[in-house]
């Protein structure tokens, strides 16, 4: 059987929120080490990869690997009923035809339980190679969210270029062009406010702003976002979840005609 108890159930709620605008049906893979998700959006433009280590849980038991096939809009409806400080418990039998969810709150003494029918979802697994990227940028996730949200008024495509000057986001449309430059900045005492740019060679790639905005739904999961780029390759946008896991998005670049 599978049984997992997460004291901060809100983490799981935020994970669901971070992917539900990209995919509808998803398998959560349970193993002895972790819960994980890998799925592509229906347009095959973006890939989400999530991992949450068993060490994130107060209790974790998974007798044999299983996939929980979930409909995210339904899961999201159930999580709307979860309180901010609730503990979450997940349970499934090895047959994995239903998932039990429990939201417990010691303070108010409430226990909510739900039984969710699971689906058999045929998933295409992609092999993502472990690549050494030419540019790696770490920046506050709230800044990244603000930039890609603000640039939407200028156009549909964002050019992201990493040079010695810094990291530049540009969008061009009918009304003109907008550029936002982030320079390396490690002045703040708080490490989460730092912008660090690790560049081996300059990279310039174009991406759909619509997708970059979908990815920023993961902002509440992490104060920091890590962008990794290499010429001609999909960008990696990673939101680390403390030392316990991550949500990573891969987005295929647009190519000039």
């Amino acid at each position: 059987m599978f049984e997992a108890r997460l004291a901060n159930g809100n983490i799981f709620k935020m994970i669901v929120e971070s992917i539900r605008e990209l995919v509808v049906d998803v398998n959560i893979d349970c193993s002895t080490e972790e819960l994980s998700i890998q799925c592509m959006d229906s347009a095959h433009v973006a890939l989400v990869s999530m991992s949450l280590s068993q060490s994130a849980f107060d209790h974790f038991r998974c007798d044999r690997s299983l996939s929980l096939g979930l409909n995210l809009p339904n899961v999201s409806k159930i999580f709307k009923m979860m309180g901010r400080d609730d503990t979450m418990v997940l349970k499934a039998e090895d047959s994995a035809d239903k998932l039990m969810l429990m939201f417990e709150n010691d303070k108010s003494g409430t226990i909510a339980d739900f039984e969710l029918k699971l689906m058999a979802i045929e998933a295409e697994q992609l092999g993502v190679p472990d690549t050494a990227y030419k540019c790696s940028i770490s920046m506050p996730s709230s800044e990244f969210q603000r930039i890609v949200r603000d640039l939407q008024v200028m156009g549909d495509t964002c050019k992201i270029s990493c040079t010695k000057e810094g990291l530049k986001f540009s969008a061009t449309g009918q009304i003109g062009t907008g550029n936002i430059l982030m320079r390396q900045n490690v002045a703040s005492e708080k490490e989460e406010d730092h912008v660090t740019i690790d560049m081996e060679e300059p990279v310039e790639l174009n991406f759909a702003l619509r997708y970059l905005n979908f990815f920023t739904k993961a902002t509440p999961l992490s104060p920091t976002v890590i962008l990794k780029m290499s010429p001609g390759l999909p960008i990696v946008i990673e939101y680390p979840i403390e030392q316990l896991g991550h949500v990573k998005y891969y987005l295929a670049p647009k190519m000039e005609e």
Binding site: M40, A43, H44, V45, A46, L47, E124, Q125, L126, G127, V128, P129, D156, T157, N206, A208, L233, P234, Y250, L251, A252, P253, K254, M255, E256, E257
Partner: peptide, 14 residues
């Protein structure tokens, strides 16, 4: 406007 690439062109199915 640039054309959108398909992600499966970069990552093979396993």
């Amino acid at each position: 406007t640039p054309m959108q690439n398909d992600l499966s062109e970069f990552f093979a199915m396993v």
